[in-house]
């Protein structure tokens, strides 16, 4: 459905007198299949929005090309526009308009006739539970209501693909869960959904496949389960005082059941082990022998954050 080859984009920005070049996206190759929810996971500034804006024809790539719903991004951006929907990260509604007006206008910008546009607006308002507020100005909406209007705008013309840039950022947990349901509903309607997020749980629970992005590059791609499987074993997090951490590291390093050991800046260790359940008692015993007091011990099954950590050396939570 989407195929990109070596998509690149740099920005030149001026800071005082110097001009700096930011390589926002450095060669992204992606394949997104029809009817899946594809997630773009990455920290702030990873280049997610820039990639999406290129795919949505808003900015021209510096290099590479892409085929989107069968249309060539470079050669026929107008056709790409007809086939996609795009919901920007920063909002897209006008304070003084109502949801209904926005929906009708947006449908008509796609060349849809007035009567048809009005019917579509009614259906969209209903599907996103907005009918109650349909004729109130957008500035009176809550964040969640407004986000729903924006997503309704993105799909009013029934595109084959919709790009949602951080659809759930800023929503409370309940609205987020609702939004996930809406997005799954889009998939069951046969739409291909391309979302960006920096929530690990969202990528894990909602997306069929994900690409992890960092510093403008895709560092891993696959289903959440596949990616986690690549990181064999469990992680044991040992909470220690900063002062005790080096000695503990020495004590545990080289133990046969520890595959890899990392120290945590705030004090403590991260142990990669095959089987957490058998490793924990042994860790406790060793530390006890060495006379080291530990603050906490936790067992982690591999998460997408661990995938991110192994690929980039940083935690997504920290960055």
């Amino acid at each position: 459905m989407i195929e990109t080859r070596g998509l690149r984009k740099s920005f030149r920005s001026r800071a005082g007198r110097e001009t700096k070049t930011v390589d926002a996206v450095r060669g992204v190759n992606l394949e997104v299949a029809e009817g899946e929810i594809f997630g773009f996971l990455g920290p702030n500034g990873a280049g997610k929005t820039t990639t999406l804006r290129m795919l949505a024809t808003l900015i021209e790539p510096d290099g590479g090309d892409a085929t989107i719903a069968g249309a060539d991004l470079r050669k026929d951006p107008a056709e790409v526009r007809r086939r996609i929907g795009y919901v920007p990260q920063g909002g897209s509604t006008w304070d003084e308009s109502t949801a209904r007006e926005e929906l009708v206008l947006h449908a008509r910008m796609y060349g849809i006739g007035k009567a048809d546009a009005q019917q579509r607006a009614v259906r969209a308002l209903d599907a996103f539970q907005l009918t109650e507020y349909a004729d109130r100005k957008c500035k009176t909406y809550s964040g969640g209501q407004r986000r729903r209007v924006e997503i309704a705008l993105g799909i009013i013309h029934e595109p084959k693909i919709v790009f949602l840039d951080e659809p759930t950022t800023g929503l409370d947990p309940q609205s987020r869960a609702h939004m996930w349901d809406e997005i799954r509903r889009l998939r069951s309607d046969g739409m291909t959904v391309f979302i960006t997020t920096h929530y690990l749980d969202e990528a894990d629970a909602l997306c069929d496949r994900i690409a992890i992005m960092d510093h403008g590059e895709v560092v891993a791609e696959g289903t959440p389960a596949e990616l986690k499987r690549e990181i064999s074993g469990d992680v044991v997090l040992v909470g220690l005082d900063v002062a005790a951490t080096p000695q503990a590291a020495q004590t545990l390093d080289g133990e046969p059941y520890v595959n890899k050991l990392e120290t945590v800046d705030e004090g403590g260790l991260r142990l990669y082990v095959d089987e957490g359940a058998t490793a924990i008692p042994q860790v406790l015993r060793r530390l006890d022998h060495a006379g080291l007091e530990l603050r906490s011990i936790e067992l982690h099954r591999p998460s997408l954050d661990d995938v991110f950590l192994t690929k980039t050396g940083r935690s997504l939570r920290e960055s």
Partner: peptide
């Protein structure tokens, strides 16, 4: 103001 609200961006992804 429209630029900031994202209205222009939203218009520019349509074939208008």
């Amino acid at each position: 103001a429209e630029l900031r609200a994202g209205v222009i961006e939203r218009s520019r992804v349509t074939p208008i």
